[in-house]
Nucleic acid binder design. Sequence first.
RNA 1: CGGGGUGUAGCGCAGUUUGGUAGCGCAUCUGGUUUGGGACCAGAGGGCCGCGGGUUCAAAUCCUGCCACCCCGACCA
Length: 573
Amino acid sequence: MKLSKLYMPTLREVPSDADIMSAQLLLRAGMIRKLVSGVYSFLPLGFRAMKKIEAIVREEMDAHDAQEVLMSAIQPREIWDASNRWENFGPEMFKLRDRHDREFCLGPTHEEYFTFMIKNELKSYKQLPINMYQIQTKYRDERRPRFGLVRAREFIMKDAYTFDADYEGMTKSYDNMAVAYSKAFDRMGFKYKVVQGDSGNMGGSISHEYIAITPSGESTIAYCNACTYAATDEVADALFTIVKKDEIYEDMQRVHTPNIRTIADLERFFDCDPSKFIKTLLVKKEDDSRVFAIMIPGHRTLSLIKLAKSVGESEDELLMLSEDEIGKLAGSVLGFAGPMGLGNQVEIIADERLFSITNAICGANESDYHYENVNLKASDYKVVDDLILVEAGDTCPNCGATLSIDRGTEVGNIFQLGDKYSKAMQATFLDKDGKAKHFMMGSYGIGISRCVSAVVEQFHDDYGINWPLAIAPYQVIITIVNTKVEAQVNAGFKLYERLKLSGVEVLIDDRNERAGVKFADADLIGIPIRVTIGKGIEDGLVEFSLRTDREKMEISIDETFEKVKLLLAKSQI
RNA sequence: CGGGGUGUAGCGCAGUUUGGUAGCGCAUCUGGUUUGGGACCAGAGGGCCGCGGGUUCAAAUCCUGCCACCCCGACCA
């Protein structure tokens, strides 16, 4: 493709509403454009990059017994009523009516429709298992669209659904998709981690999330550098120990601590290690039916999910007490809560590690007072082994190495659905024994457009995008330094035609611009292999370089051709 | 949905406090000089100042209603 003809409206300045690096670069590089909040279009270069990702996903799905279909995005209300999700999906669903006032939605996902279709067409165990997928535009009216392609209201998703005769079959299908996903994400080249999904309130159902490591990511994960352990921070086991010191138990003392509210204040006031402190947090159930006092090591953070599990409540219903409520309950202001004298209606829950602290310091439930030399007895409290959020440096529960913490973006997930939808929609088949049974299902998603931004988040520098060869919109860009010099133009186009003929995806910058403009654009759009044709052409030499490093090599056109072919061959593993 | 902020040329912004003929940089077009890291000179085009109502002789500017966009807030590809 000639750059003089390519629709590639690059911007020198960053559009003011682009909030993350990938959105800024994709917009500046003329790869995407925003129409309204959370709704983007793909221009030629951006679309090509996305199609590369699609192709990788398609190849891996096809290679793992999935068959591609294309289901309608527009769906009638009736099939959603069967699973109750017309109501339950909530305001995120884009709903519309036709001229006869019949209700429809734009598909946010397709469990219902696939199940509905299967139920009418698949009747025998002999036809199972079956795995179908599609790559299609999805619609979700997000509460707050942001981060460019990451949280869009219209986005491209690969979604797959498996139907099996029994539980074993379902897990096999699930494992098969897990392999396909790892292969696909490996080929895209970005760094990612597989974490166990939050089985949380639902209990039971198994799922995994594929998290691309990106500094702007919305989820925080803990992972081990030595083994494959990875989990979201709220769920990850926080393995750290407090070594019990062989100290003499001193007598408890009430200490006047005017205005000393935070752990940092306490450290300064008592001039001691933060592991000496017991932090007491007051949490209630939303409807005020239960109140909890949670004691954790002072320098750590409470995990609401872990708390919810240990008290058998839903995480969503647990709230931290407000300052007023603390005053009423504990007779103190924020910062002086402690386990003593809280009254019977408060359930006190303690992180196990507290009892290793000798002569601890905690709030006295009285404004401006703390206790020191506190030595709690485990037998007096409900003890839970782990209530806190994992931190970098904690021990890997799997192999004992040290954990790291990073932020990430969910680019894929796989889910064992069981018979949730087949039951709701009465989708059955006849098993060997002639009995009607519910399909055992799985669903599997990859955010295709989200992957585009994940790649850009991971592969860029100060000058622009730095596409991995496997998903670059073009593999090679030939820059003609001065289009007024015939020898440069001729040599450029000769190489261009030759590469094209041998199947290389190549751009040629034949614009009548100054060299600086062309180099800047080449950097910005991030084509991996660069050939610059300038003055050296008089001696038959061109410059060969890679986007990843700025080192240039002066070689002949023939050598250039061979080098390109070699690089491309190496990347096709 | 709650709180905060912003809407002026394709992009980035000034002008609004104190009402008086709509500006700057980049981009675009024409001519010329340039041509290895975002050139220079001369000229030109491009605006319902988010939309509606009001105040006023006069509104980008003041008042008011609405809309859009962005930021901060517990289910997600």
